[in-house]
Structures are given as structure tokens and as C-alpha cells.
Simulated assay, not measured.
Amino acid sequence: MEWRDMVVVPLSFDLFREAELDAERVFGYDPDGDACYYAHRYVLREPRSDDGEEFYAAAAYAESVAAWRLRDQRWLIHRTVQPGQDCAGQSFYSFSESMPR
């Protein structure tokens, strides 16, 4: 909340979804058409079985990122990483001089 007033607010968005993977990417643009918001999310899956006969796709790794360009041109980045289906995710904030990819 303390950085809220420093964020450049996006007015339009582009959303890209990967058809074969559990993944998506979003770009947000300011009135001049410059990127001021970025987000991505993906889940990597692997086959698992509880009984050795029936298999299902379980999350092996997941990541989500949301980033906002600040008025001073830095990027405020929020990243969440979950190393497995049964593991608790870890979230953290950081700053960058460039938009994450």
C-alpha cells in the first residue's frame, strides 16, 4: 500500500495465453502506449500416481509475477514461487531498473 501512489496506472491491456501449457502473460500500457504493468503465471506439471496404475498431472513448480512501473521509472515486482504441489509458496517484493520477462 505504501507504493500505491507511485504506480503508473495502466489504461489498456494485452493478454496472452499458452494453449498447451498452464501459462499466461499480461502487459498493461499507460496513455502513451508504454508498458507500465506486467504479469505472468505458469505451472509446470509432472505425472504422479498414488497407486502406480492411475496417473495424474501434479504441479511440480509454479510461479507468478506482477510488476508495476513506478513514477521514478523503477519496477516494483511481486513474485510468488511454489516449488511443489505440497509445498507452501514463498512471496517477496523487489525493485528492478527494467521490466521483468
Rank of each mutant, 00 (worst) to 15 (best):
E54P: 01
E20K: 05
G28A: 07
H40R: 14
D34Y: 14
E24M: 08
L44V: 13
G33V: 14
E18N: 13
V9M: 02
Q73N: 11
V8F: 07
G84A: 07
A57T: 01
R4A: 15
R48G: 03
H40Y: 12
V26P: 00
R41F: 15
A57F: 04
Q82D: 08
V8D: 09
R45F: 14
E18M: 00
R4M: 15
L44P: 12
L21G: 01
A59L: 11
S49K: 02
H78N: 02
V9R: 11
D86H: 02
A62L: 11
A66V: 08
S12M: 10
G89M: 01
R71Y: 02
Y37S: 05
S12R: 06
C36K: 13
E20S: 07
A88P: 13
W3D: 15
R45Q: 15
Y93K: 03
P10S: 04
E63S: 02
D50K: 11
L76G: 07
R45L: 01
D14A: 10
M99S: 14
D32V: 08
W75H: 02
Y56E: 06
L70A: 10
L11Y: 03
T80G: 02
D32T: 12
A23K: 09
P83K: 09
E53R: 11
S64P: 10
R71D: 07
R79T: 02
P47G: 01
E46D: 06
F16W: 12
A60P: 00
M99A: 15
Q73K: 12
P47M: 00
F13A: 03
V7A: 04
A57M: 13
R17N: 15
F95V: 03
